[in-house]
Design a protein around this nucleic acid. Structure first.
Lengths: 329, 329
DNA sequence: TTGTACGCGTTATCAC
DNA sequence: GTGATAACGCGTACAA
């Protein structure tokens, strides 16, 4: 390993001087600087971030905690975070929590042990001791808790839009799929949809699901059509569930969107590749990741931050699982 | 920050003793140990991994470099790596390379600066200086290079299987989609398919694609049916491309699999949710991640490793984009 | 069985 | 302008 001492020896100066040119701190003669830079280049020296981190008590590392990168919604989030962090020289320590509080605690602990300078987490337990006791800046992503820094999409409005659109397009017997009870965005979506349905005096049914995971979405799709065979409109809790519903509807010989309309949530990349392609409520997922990163960077680098709760807008994406809107012609 | 000194002070012993109980090294009296453990619990002490890393010149961190986590193939790989690493107490520093050699170099450098103890990379440049000069254990994942530790699937056999199956199921005018020329597994698949087609004296066409990315797969699907309108069998380079081809075929009013059969590659999670669901060559993606992690752990913890080149088998998954095999009844 | 002292690579303070 | 040197938190000879 090549260290700052080697550079100092070769350049014929002290390590203090090398440190100065490295960090552009303090005075250093132009000639001296050149000698040092030459030495650095000669032996291809790069500073040991671990030693830096030890001394400064903080690293250039960010902890990123996601429920499950295998769920196609999260990679975009992660990518947004990474790209933005990269721009400011921060790197990611990454972990999947599987919505398991113990695993979260374990990861957060590792983050702290590694002197991460901040954490971004899509946790289901934002009010857990894990986070309230955390001494470093934290941003909740796709999650929120009172007054804590967070970035998320407007789920309630998304639910409202989904309900309005599916009604405007002619569904009369709507079934809402309610996502996991403990996940705030899922409940927001659900409530938004219910609100509109109630306002418009529509009858509707509800199917409850317990997870957002890939595995085991089919059973809920089957349950839906067994319990409510006459459903002619489905507001799904996310695109994965919507995809399973679509699959099951087609399997049962139903025409989509003629017999049943389906609206998803998220607009994950595969939605547009389905046949028929999936109408859905678009979330600016990648940008949410970027925003969370930007917010965390502000929290780290600035004293005070004005807006630390960021809600991003959603929008309806019309594709082929909904009929043309008659009203709009 | 609570340090080993605090523990020592509270327990009324020296830091050396605390260190001994922490690392279970050397002798320590049972009573003393209990006092130390009590103190640790009392002030909730956890060792500073940065200081450890500095002293030992290596951390518990692993560098994981993937082309793009947004491509649905890679999250499973990442998950496999993480789960296995977790079991041995290693954590991941993660980065997307975008198949960009400069970004790779940048990340590898960061990994080294952070004392990672090993690297797993799905690089397109395994023979680059970046890797040949690397002083720490490295495992190539879903990639391979002569004699270097690597874990990958048997692409050639996969290509052969795909061709055999699509022929056995009655396709006469087959089009193969050839993945990016610089990615070894893509070429293996292609060659395997071509081999069988040649052996059986079938006529076939080839469409060349330049990337495995999501964006811009549609154009190739369109190109395929414009150039080779009579195609009745498509061997796609991966499931994303296959999905786009399926989408386009249905859009053109073709019946799948009656008019055209489609076989994908990878068996990403969405494949089974498509309508019709996608027949494909299954890769044990998650297990590949795990295997790569296991191999790297061996490389790190053992002196010599017998098999450092691991090729995993693939298999055909029959779903709905292929017809029933007549021969098999 | 336990404690002292040093070094890991870096930065910051303070002389010179 | 530059160079010693202490300190960051930990692990390990070596001494006691």
């Amino acid at each position: 390993m090549v260290t700052i001492k080697d550079v100092a020896r070769i350049a014929g100066v002290s390590v203090a001087t090398v440190s100065r040119v490295l960090n552009e701190s303090g005075y250093v003669n132009t000639d001296t600087r050149k000698k040092v830079e030459a030495a650095i280049k000669q032996i291809n020296y790069t500073p040991n971030e671990v030693a830096r981190s030890l001394f400064k008590r903080k690293s250039k590392l960010i902890g990123l905690l996601l429920p499950d990168i295998t769920n196609p919604y999260f990679p975009l989030l992660a990518r947004g975070v990474e790209d933005r962090m990269q721009e400011n020289g921060y790197r990611l320590i990454f972990g999947n929590s599987d919505e398991n509080e113990f695993k979260e605690l374990d990861y957060i602990q590792t983050f702290v042990q590694n002197n991460v300078i901040g954490v971004i987490s899509s946790t289901n337990f934002p009010d857990s001791d894990i986070y309230t006791k955390l001494q470093i800046p934290i941003v909740f992503l796709d999650r929120t808790s009172n007054e804590r820094p967070s970035v998320y999409a407007d789920g309630r409005e998304g639910g409202r839009i989904a309900a309005k659109e599916i009604i405007a397009r002619g569904s009369k017997r709507i079934t809402i799929i309610q996502g996991p009870a403990h996940i705030k965005p899922a409940q927001d979506r659900f409530q938004g949809a219910v609100e509109v349905l109630e306002e418009m005096n529509m009858t509707y049914n509800v199917i409850q699901t317990s997870s957002f995971s890939y595995t085991g979405v089919e059973p809920w799709a089957k349950e839906l059509f067994e319990k409510y065979i006459n459903t002619d409109g489905v507001i799904a809790s996310n695109d994965i569930v919507a995809t399973a519903v679509l699959h099951e509807a087609l399997r049962l010989g139903k025409s989509v969107p003629q017999d049943v309309q389906i609206i998803g949530f998220d607009d994950i990349p595969l939605s547009s590749l389905l046949s028929p392609s999936l109408s859905t409520i678009h979330q600016p997922t990648y940008d949410m990741g970027r925003e969370a990163a930007s917010l965390l960077i502000k929290l780290i680098e600035q004293d005070k931050v004005e807006d630390s709760i960021i809600q991003l807008p959603v929008r309806f994406v019309e594709r082929e699982t909904t009929r043309r809107n008659q009203e709009k012609g």
